[in-house]
């Protein structure tokens, strides 16, 4: 076959060999992260095995583990996080269900409101609760006003229950957002068909909606669990001396006591706990992605 061979117009530049492989471009941001995040984290680990006296030992760990305050904090952290996660999941599921499937006027605005809510700091919730349930707050004021008693019955803000209430309030939207996204994927015709086949609402929720929402529930739940474990502002604002969690203990040891090694030990335990849960979260979201891709 006779090609008409003419020099190619316009694009005359010869192929320039690439001077460096593509992954080199990844290095600057990773290096930045290394300097301000990974390296400091490693130093925390290092400091936790370097007592002030010099040398290296795990003595600080033994010391911290032996403290009742540490064990209390650990227990509080885990219990409050688990409780807040369970509460957020239940509340978030119910609320998202209504927004998605029993549309009410202004539902769109509600969804937007949730987005805004997510971007406000957590301690605002505690601040609000102080006005509602605090010793001189609305609820107690109402009680003393109507009964004439000297003090109201609501005095749980400084207990784990107060922290729990605040965390459920604050973290519920974090469950709702992925759920609303998952619900949007459900074809409304599916629900209509299920209803026309005679399924009642609880059955539809259980057999049609829940399976679809389960991955998002799992992912949202584990994210909230991690965030609850790490929550600091809410606990700090209750000013509850009785409720110490691991982050509060880190703050107390480092800033109030000046015991860096002890703070680092607690931090290492906290990081380990969070990372383990975070790994779980990643695994779940990965599965979720995989399942979604498999369906697509």
């Amino acid at each position: 076959m006779a090609d008409v061979r003419l020099p190619f117009p316009r694009v005359a530049a010869p192929a320039r060999p690439r001077r460096f492989p593509g992954w080199v471009l990844v290095l600057p941001p990773v290096a930045a992260l290394g300097v301000v995040f990974l390296h400091p984290l490693a130093l925390v680990l290092w400091q936790s095995v370097s007592p002030d006296g010099g040398g290296h030992s795990f003595a600080a760990y033994g010391e911290v583990f032996a403290q009742a305050a540490f064990r209390d904090a650990l227990r509080n952290t885990v219990l409050i996080a688990a409780g807040a996660t369970a509460g957020s999941l239940a509340l978030g599921f119910a609320l998202a269900l209504v927004i998605a499937f029993v549309p009410l006027p202004g539902g769109k605005a509600l969804a937007r409101f949730i987005d805004v809510f997510l971007s406000f700091p957590s301690f605002l919730i505690t601040l609000a609760l102080l006005f509602v349930y605090g010793t001189a707050g609305i609820a107690n004021g109402l009680w003393t006003g109507t009964t004439g008693a000297a003090a109201g019955p609501f005095d749980f803000l400084h207990t784990p229950w107060g922290v729990l209430l605040a965390e459920i309030t604050y973290f519920t939207p974090f469950v709702m957002r992925p759920l609303l996204a998952a619900f949007a994927q459900i074809d409304p015709a599916q629900l209509d068909v299920a209803a026309s086949l005679g399924a009642r609402v609880p059955r539809i929720v259980r057999q049609v909606i829940l399976p679809e929402a389960l991955p998002s529930l799992a992912a949202g739940g584990s994210l909230v669990l991690v965030m609850c474990l790490n929550e600091f502002g809410i606990v700090l604002f209750t000013g509850a001396k009785g409720v110490t969690t691991l982050p509060v203990l880190v703050y107390g040891k480092a800033i109030l006591d000046g015991d860096y090694t002890g703070a680092c030990v607690v931090a290492v335990v906290d990081i380990a706990l969070s990372l383990a849960l975070y790994g779980l979260y990643r695994t779940l979201t990965h599965r979720l992605d995989g399942a979604r891709r498999a369906r697509a």
Binding site: V36, P40, Q47, V226
Partner: peptide, 17 residues
């Protein structure tokens, strides 16, 4: 990773580093 690490610990690590 920074999401998974408690913010207080991020603060502490910067303080240490």
């Amino acid at each position: 990773l920074p999401v998974a690490v408690p913010s207080v610990v991020v603060g502490l690590s910067l303080l240490v580093a």
